[in-house]
């Protein structure tokens, strides 16, 4: 394992108006590992990832990929670093107006890395890696089931061969069997690419399946990091309550009665 982590967040801060979402997030993701970020709804998991991907401008702190501070890089270099990332969105975010094969090869086509007539074959090849046949190529996103959409979105995220991949709630809305299938695919493709993975999830079974390491975010800060296997008996009351899904504990929900 290299000494320089693939991704390092130092004191990352973000507020929307008066609401502080990230209050100094510190996190290191070792190269080639799979990190799972856990946390309740609104705890800042997605905002963290969106800050890394440049979709949201953080208010403060530092984001380093391969030891390079993104904010300090010239625009073109920053774009080049982010060009080697991939993202699987929670709802898939497939482009409705394009067939599956164009969705999968979108980045390759946009950057003219492959000719258009070769893209369909390339899409079929990548779809096979996520367990889908070539007959899916010409379907439209609206014609796919939720599980198939997730797999197509996964194919799109890996088609350009990224070395840092983010997964936002990859199993949300799927039945337990399909969730396990998606988790298995994620583990396979990440290993095959030799990539580093960062996943956000509420699903403990999924977290244990796909994660080498886990981090818990609570009230905008990372309160625990450790091996994913330790979830549930970490010794941290916040993590253990969350992992076991217990109502009583240090995490309280503001419910109006």
């Amino acid at each position: 394992m290299s000494a320089v982590p693939k991704l390092r967040l130092v004191g990352l801060r973000k507020a929307f108006g008066a609401k502080v979402v990230l209050d100094g997030v510190d996190l290191e993701v070792p190269r080639g590992s799979s990190m799972v970020i856990l946390g309740g709804s609104g705890s800042g998991k997605s905002v963290t990832v969106k800050c890394v991907l440049g979709l949201i401008e953080p208010d403060g702190g530092r984001i380093e990929i391969d030891g390079r501070d993104l904010a300090a890089l010239p625009r073109a270099e920053r774009a080049a670093v982010l060009d080697r990332t991939g993202m699987l969105f929670q709802n898939g975010a497939l482009f409705d107006s394009l067939p599956v094969w164009e969705n999968v090869c979108f980045k390759l086509l946009a950057q003219k890395r492959i000719p258009r007539r070769a893209a369909r074959d390339k899409a079929a090849e990548v779809l096979a890696q996520v367990g889908l046949g070539p007959e899916v190529c010409d379907l439209w996103p609206a014609e796919l089931s939720g599980g198939m959409q997730k797999r197509v979105a996964l194919a799109r995220a890996i088609a350009a061969g990224p070395d840092l991949i983010f997964f936002d709630e990859p199993t949300t809305g799927l039945d337990p069997i399909m969730a396990a299938v998606i988790d298995g695919l994620i583990v396979d493709v990440v290993k095959r690419l030799g990539a580093t993975a960062v996943s956000i999830t509420h699903d403990m079974a999924s977290a244990r399946r796909i994660g080498d390491h886990a981090a818990m975010i609570h009230k905008g800060r990372i309160v625990w990091t450790g091996p994913a296997k330790a979830l549930g008996n970490s010794g941290n009351p916040l993590v253990d309550q969350f992992a076991r899904g217990e109502r009583e504990g240090p995490i309280t929900m503001d419910l109006r009665r």
């Binding site: 969106k50 991907l53 440049g54 979709l55 774009a79 982010l82 060009d83 990332t85 991939g86 993202m87 969105f89 929670q90 709802n91 975010a93 497939l94 482009f95 409705d96 979108f106 980045k107 946009a110 950057q111 799109r156 350009a160």
Partner: peptide, 12 residues
Amino acid sequence: TDQIDALSTLST
């Protein structure tokens, strides 16, 4: 539906 964010993550 996050498709615009997806464009950004696909370097577009």
